[in-house]
């Protein structure tokens, strides 16, 4: 795990940071929109979309890391 952390480039760290930030942002939008009920349906959709995007980005990041690890092991 430590080795993988060391290998993370600046771009990857940035991607990871944004992916993690998007989820609470989506949650804040969704919660605040829900306070106004279904009238704020466009905001609810937007908030959920942010959460979904963040989760997908993290999942993609994890998949990419797994592939990289397995190809590195094969290389050895």
């Amino acid at each position: 795990m430590n080795e993988r952390t060391q290998r993370r480039s600046l771009r990857e760290r940035y991607r990871l940071f944004v992916s993690i930030l998007i989820i609470p942002l989506g949650a804040i939008i969704t919660v605040r929109a829900f306070m106004f009920g279904l009238q704020a349906w466009t905001l609810i959709i937007l908030g959920l979309a942010f959460i979904g995007l963040g989760v997908v980005r993290l999942w993609n990041y994890r998949q990419g890391a797994l592939v990289r690890d397995s190809s590195a092991q094969k290389g050895r």
């Binding site: 939008i29 106004f36 704020a40």
Partner: peptide
């Protein structure tokens, strides 16, 4: 969205 967002204005 953190500092200037006002859902009431949108509605």
């Amino acid at each position: 969205f953190l500092f200037a967002f006002n859902p009431a204005l949108l509605i």
